[in-house]
Nucleic acid binder design. Structure first.
Lengths: 190, 190
DNA sequence: AATCAAACGGAGGAATATTCTCCGGTTATG
DNA sequence: CATAACCGGAGAATATTCCTCCGTTTGATT
């Protein structure tokens, strides 16, 4: 494969992720090509149909996030710290795009990745709970749910930099809440 | 105005809010009319152009939320409790639709409401901070940002009931985090 | 530096989605 | 029961998105 072809291919994937996050759904092919700075023909040569690009993009993000997460769980002994770093990292990797794309994919089954991701989440939550720093009533699904809340920009008239920085800030608040001994609300209205 | 006309008008507004939340953007007119169970002609008679429907819907949600918030601040003495109840209520009222629609409106200026909303937020945050139960470094914008994270469904393959219930649950976690004396993260990486 | 297979760009017609008008029929209201 | 107000939805008009095709450019190889 020629060098320029490879570069374009990767660029198309990156742009697709970017646009998926901005649009909050399937972006128009023309828009992807334009933003990537390539002709529409190039897009169609690399990804003959919509699905193949979306698959490639989703897989790219997932793979990066899971791999980094597996490394974190080895490297960071404290459970909540590992979880926190994982979530911030996933957010920067564009994990929100996976959340958006998953329901749009026709055959989104990657047995290998699915297992690795599930195992990773289970380890993260389990260890932190066992260490006593994380609430005991959280499942993996909760973590995924929480992550998705901060993982994609929701238009409120902020620049994308402001949005990113606020997302990280509030993700930290949220994680503080997950560490609280007992929900204040729970105490008030049992 | 005839009774059936009024009923249809209100129904159209409700459906619009519902669809805006589902779609995450401007829904197609046809879809609104169909879901509301009225002919497309009826939609156009009540709201000759797109903007007028979106305006009406936005205003409806905003008005309800602000009014309820003003009542809460009177009725609930504890600052954080008031804030918590406000956020849960706004979530149920479809405040997420406002967040989505605002950037799509052409002339979204309701001086009265804008002032009331700003005042409300300032009071809520200010009082809770003064009472010492809420973090001191939060602005009104932070609260709005946080609210928007939970205020609209983000597709993850959940039924709309599951989604709603998880949103409330995690909003509580998040609020617990806003009450923490000091962020654990902040303590770890200053 | 010459060659050429591989890759590129983008005009523009086809396909699809959305908007919005129009008018014959229906219904609430007095 | 009269009638003004309201309703429904077919379908033409418009906007958007898709995707093919082919002449041009470029990276690799010798």
């Amino acid at each position: 494969m020629r060098a320029d072809a490879l570069k374009n291919r990767q660029r198309l994937i990156d742009v697709a992720i970017e646009l998926v996050l901005e649009v909050g759904g399937e972006p128009a092919r023309d828009a992807i090509a334009e933003r990537a700075g390539v002709g529409i023909g190039t897009l169609y040569r690399h990804f003959p149909d919509q699905q193949s690009l979306l698959h490639a993009a989703t897989r790219h993000v997932l793979e990066k996030s899971v791999a980094a997460g597996e490394a974190l769980i080895e490297a960071v002994p404290d459970g909540v710290d590992a979880l926190r770093q994982y979530m911030h990292m996933a957010l920067d990797n564009g994990i929100g795009a996976v959340n958006i794309l998953h329901p749009l994919l026709e055959k989104p089954d990657w047995p290998d990745l699915r297992v690795r991701a599930a195992t990773l989440m289970k380890s993260m939550v389990g260890r932190a709970a066992r260490q006593g720093t994380l609430r005991k009533d959280l499942s993996e699904r909760d973590i995924v749910f929480g992550l998705t809340r901060f993982a994609r920009p929701l238009a409120v008239g902020l620049s994308s930099d402001e949005e990113r920085s606020l997302a990280h800030r509030h993700l930290d608040f949220y994680l503080d809440g997950l560490c609280a001994e007992q929900s204040r609300r729970g105490a008030l209205e049992p």
